[in-house]
């Protein structure tokens, strides 16, 4: 039925899933941006949706976030139909969108106050919550700043703080760290790990392998609207590839290409050549024999899995 190659989760989740999707389709004219995706996300885990630009990550998370409606298939979020029961579902979600949308006409504090009102929250307890969350993302003291005066990293952190104000059961983050410097990225990862440790279910979309490897219990790779593989990061790599990879430039090191081809299969993607093997020693031996520069041998990564299955790199 589904063409997704699946590796089972390495622990047994309990209770009903947070998100359940069956053959979900979303079309824009002739284009099927999400083309028959099926997946199930247990409560309490972090699920990372990986995929190149235009894969359908945002389209899928918007449907899950009850902002957009699927054209076919079945979608259940926190036990409800997110389109039919929009308000009820959204009341229990925290959403960090790909582009930060704040109310540009209001300052930081007013933004958070009005946001609360949309959830029916206000008063002293909510004000306390605002202070707490601003402190949590290290933005205390910025209450009176206009939104336009915040840097990109501050805005993203404010988005995360805002998404937590309504005590969500499910947090949806669409590329939370794209375009941020490594420091802020690590800070956001720390935040997400802390939330996960408290049992929150997190759905994350990203272009970054490292992000998925750092945070996710389950990774799904989306390509042209289809979920091509799914599984825990380590399991996925083990299932699809030998442990190590030798990567080099097929044009510059044409001689190596011929020498190694005699010993093993080589995968070519554009200028790059990839040789997979379970023994790091063997690969190093071949690299030295062909006088390849630098250290071209490394552990096989999710990116290699993606490349193998789709013939494309993730940031393409």
């Amino acid at each position: 039925m589904s063409e997704t190659a699946r590796v089972p989760l390495d622990f047994k989740p309990s209770g009903p899933p947070a998100i359940e999707i069956e053959n979900l389709v979303k079309r824009f004219g002739a284009l099927a941006a999400v083309d028959g995706v099926s997946l199930s996300i247990p409560r309490g885990i972090c699920y990372a949706l990986l995929g190149p630009n235009g894969a359908g990550k945002t389209t899928l998370s918007r449907m899950i976030g009850a902002v957009s409606r699927g054209d076919a298939g079945k979608l259940t979020v926190l036990g409800r139909d997110p389109w039919r029961e929009q308000s009820e579902v959204k009341a229990r979600l925290g959403v960090v969108m790909q582009d930060e949308v704040f109310d540009e006409d209001l300052n930081v504090l007013r933004n958070l106050q009005i946001y609360g009102l949309f959830f029916g929250r206000r008063g002293e307890a909510y004000e306390r919550k605002i202070r707490e969350m601003l402190k949590f993302v290290q933005l205390e003291g910025r209450e009176q700043m206009p939104i336009q005066a915040l840097s990109g990293g501050m805005r993203r952190r404010l988005m995360i703080a805002r998404a937590l104000l309504n005590e969500p059961e499910l947090l949806i983050l669409d590329e939370p760290t794209t375009g941020l410097d490594p420091q802020v990225r690590h800070a956001i990862w720390a935040t997400l790990r802390a939330l996960k440790a408290k049992g929150m279910t997190v759905l994350l979309t990203t272009h970054y392998m490292e992000e998925a490897e750092q945070l996710a219990d389950l990774v799904g790779i989306l390509h042209k609207g289809k979920l091509v593989v799914e599984g825990p990061p380590s399991g996925l790599i083990a299932k699809h590839l030998p442990r190590f990879v030798l990567e080099f430039d097929a044009h510059k090191d044409g001689a190596a290409l011929d020498a190694i081809a005699a010993k093993s299969a080589i995968e070519r993607h554009g200028d790059r050549a990839f040789v997979f093997h379970d023994s790091e020693e063997t690969l190093r031996g071949w690299a030295t024999a062909s006088r390849l520069q630098g250290s071209p041998v490394r552990a096989a990564s999710l990116e290699d899995v993606f490349l193998k299955l789709t013939g494309r790199t993730l940031d393409e």
Binding site: S87, G120, K129, F136, Q138, L164, E169, A194, L195, K198
Partner: peptide, 27 residues
């Protein structure tokens, strides 16, 4: 101000969420 977020800060902030208890309802 440091850009670093501490893991230690999180539990207190999130714990406060759980006290609130019942699933939030839409207005």
């Amino acid at each position: 101000m440091s850009e670093e977020l501490s893991d230690a800060a999180a539990p207190a902030a999130i714990a406060a969420q759980e006290e609130a208890g019942a699933a939030p309802r839409a207005p």
